[in-house]
């Protein structure tokens, strides 16, 4: 069983990137999420101020209507 089966819907990754502007932050965030292996990526929040950007990116594991791994495990 994959640990991802235990994720109800998505994994959010929240961090602070040292970068020059929001475009760079967005590019870096997408690269980071892809590096982690997420397929269905959204940037939920991004704001650049001065030294860097606060970002929250989301990788969906299950969306409504999918066959949820956690629903079919014997122990929830």
């Amino acid at each position: 069983m994959s640990i991802l089966d235990k994720i109800m819907d998505a994994i959010d990754l929240e961090t602070y990137l040292v970068c020059k502007d929001e475009d760079e932050a967005e590019k870096l965030t997408k690269e980071l999420m892809e590096k982690f292996g997420f397929k269905d990526i959204s940037i939920v929040f991004i704001q650049h101020q001065g030294p860097g950007a606060r970002v929250r990116a989301r990788g969906y594991i299950y969306k409504p209507g999918d066959r949820y791994g956690w629903l079919f495990k014997q122990s929830y």
Binding site: M8, D9, A10, D12, D40, S42, I43, V44, F45, R58, Y60, K63, P64
Partner: peptide
């Protein structure tokens, strides 16, 4: 807290 986020479904967290 996803109220203003329109890029995907609302999550439980």
């Amino acid at each position: 807290s996803d109220e203003a986020f329109s890029g995907g479904p609302i999550t439980v967290p």
